[in-house]
Design a protein around this nucleic acid. Structure first.
Lengths: 232, 232
DNA sequence: CGCAGCCTTGACAAATGTCAACAAACGTGG
DNA sequence: CCACGTTTGTTGACATTTGTCAAGGCTGCG
């Protein structure tokens, strides 16, 4: 793969502390690919042949069962996905597709496992990464089980506001259809949920959100760091 | 702590491969405690001072928000819990309480992190463990988002049947109130869901379940290894 | 310009939760 | 071992939440 991508990959927490020659080993076997939007990258159930890294663009992780499907998460640059499947040498639990034009690095899973076995720093970095992911999923599960869809939307809006800088007006990070799926509801329900937040001063104009009354919305949403903070 | 417990702990995947003196280091700082049933062990939000290991009995991991609460998982012997919080030196995301009289080992988190930093085998074991837990949570999330409560119950029954040996009659692993919470529904809804499985030959007598028609139930439940297999 | 996909809305249906009542099971203290 | 009180499970009636289906408007893109 082109060496130009090395530095940004090397800077990732996952690869920052490992020995240089081990990093080179990984990069030698890796290659970069450019994908158009809306392309399937992997399908759940397939063997986990590659660890993926999103360099640019974005990727949707989703799952299907019995004709239904749901968005599980979005991967944005620069980060990896399907690390756990790679480590356990197990089939993917989620499918992945590009949301937009994306550059993606593919590192053969066997290389990752081989280096993982000989590089303690790399192993530790993987632990840290996995522990964080694990906690993120637990938070999502709490969100799903403890809140109604209206409450989930209200808290999502507050999280997104924070991510966007904290101002009263900001944009949604993806189309509503997908947001609905991420939040575990139908597009119709999401549409009505936005209306349901009107009493708390939430105004929606296409993909543009304005929070009229911050305190009202927060009083309703009751955001909680143990569910909504994605840094800890 | 009493040395009698060492061998069974040592046999856990998490500790099996590590250097003996490192294992001794962990055990020196650890202590065993006997708890009665229904005792709170930890509360979400607290700093993660100890890695816990259930030697006997069982522990409920649950979470709360805004007056509601939900069971997230059950920990049975012999295994650890709150590993991720220990690793990340972050607050617990879940609370824990004993379901019955339980023996529990507590290892100071700082010891775990210290040994983790110097013992590559231990670090690798933690990776494997965390990757498995991560995948288990993803499966639960798919279960929650892709299935109705009736479907979740049907698949739970099939899983539990397998765990109990595969025969047509078997017992539930815990009280229905908690099962309802684990499956993400109310006790009333669970009660009716059992009735809703009557057409598929499911007969409930207290805590005793009999599957009259295996094929009918499976045709309805559509169990899927990427959701229901807890080994991969 | 015209098509395709997304978003919204209305009407309706299904799933799930709430509240209340009561029976059954359980545990404790006598 | 029993009596009592508490908890759990069940059931009915009802409310709320969420999903489904159908239609129409809007937008973006070829």
């Amino acid at each position: 793969m082109p060496q130009s991508a090395y530095p940004e990959i090397r800077k990732l927490d996952l690869f920052a502390a490992m020995a240089e020659d081990h990093f080179q080993t990984l990069m030698r076997g890796a290659y970069v690919q450019n994908f158009p939007a809306h392309i399937d990258l992997i399908a759940e159930g397939e063997p986990s042949d590659f660890l993926h890294i999103v360099l640019s663009g974005s990727v949707d992780l989703f799952a299907q069962w019995n004709g239904r499907d749901t968005s599980m998460a979005t991967v944005r640059p620069i980060s990896t996905f399907i690390l756990a499947a790679t480590i356990r040498e197990a089939p993917y639990l989620m499918s992945a597709r590009t949301l937009e034009k994306s550059r993606i690095v593919l590192i053969p899973s066997q290389d990752v496992r081989a280096v993982f076995d000989i590089d303690a720093n790399f192993a530790r970095a993987i632990v840290t990464e996995l522990a964080q992911r694990y906690r993120a999923v637990i938070k999502t599960q709490k969100d799903l089980k403890l809140r109604t869809s209206l409450e989930r939307l209200a808290n999502y809006i507050l999280r997104q506001q924070k991510r966007a800088g904290g101002g009263p007006t900001f944009g949604l990070e993806f189309e509503k259809r997908r947001l609905a799926s991420v939040l575990g509801m139908t597009p119709e329900n999401l549409s009505r949920a936005f209306k349901g937040l009107d009493p708390y001063g939430v105004v929606v104009d296409g993909t543009r959100i304005t929070i009229g009354s911050q305190t009202d919305l927060e009083r309703f949403a009751k955001p909680n760091p143990l569910i909504d903070d994605f840094t800890t």
